[in-house]
Amino acid sequence: MLYLDLTLQGLIQGSMYALIAVGLTLVYGLLRILHVAHAGLFTLGAYIAVTVTNAAGSLLLAALVAVPLVGLAGMAIYRLLYEPILHRPPFVALIASIGLFICMEEGFRLVFGPYGNSFDLSPVEGSVQLGALSLQTVEAATIVAAFGLLGALAVFAGRTRIGVAWRATVTDPEMAQSFGIDTVKVRYLNFFIGSALAAVAGVLVALLNNFVEPTMGSVPSYKMLAIIVLGGLGNVKGTLVASLALGVMESFGTIYAGHIMDRDAIAFLFLVAVLMVRPQGLFGKA
């Protein structure tokens, strides 16, 4: 029973990772940029959720504001930060991204204060009973959101005309352009969807901890890099599997190896172990 509970907790954590990491892997797949500032967008989503909920009293409204707004912020980052330096070597964009991320963290601190913010009234209470296992409603919502949204994304990419154009641009941007696909629009779409998913994760984490703080993106900022490498850079399905696997590894590791190493060490040990056997990641092409 305990093992089942720990597995479930791992899947919850993994779902959270997946929602954040997918945006990162999408950006990498399209532009070969390691978009570290993505973790700042996750934080932004959480802050908007708490602020709007406290002001307007409606979590639904807050989520409806936070998700598209963060999506737009992601597009703005592409337009203002990455587009002007696209012709430079990739490390330039990486350094710019790290710089932006630090600015965002300190910006949150200046705007919202160093103490972190909470919901005035906890908007979601209660738990869901799964047989003998009990889950907080928010935890259940996290799993549903991750699978639902990423499933919808798969359908969108696979079945719609825009999705086909998107995949074509990822595979071969020049060829896609010569077939009349507007690759710049594809990039905006890419940033919008990836950032909006990170905002969803931000809203869920804010609910789960009842706490958002300026530095809440710092762990995701580097752990997501491990996950997208593990999943095979640019591979969405791989990222999902890698997130869930890492979540479950961490869940058991925290309990049974926690006195030797912390959660992050477990995650990176797992990464090293996998890369030794499969240098291209779990689902990367050799």
Partner: peptide, 21 residues
Amino acid sequence: NEYQYSIKDRQFGPIVSKVAA
């Protein structure tokens, strides 16, 4: 029992499950 966590942790799902047990 003694469980360890890092200062960066905010989600304690696994530890909470084990403590419940």
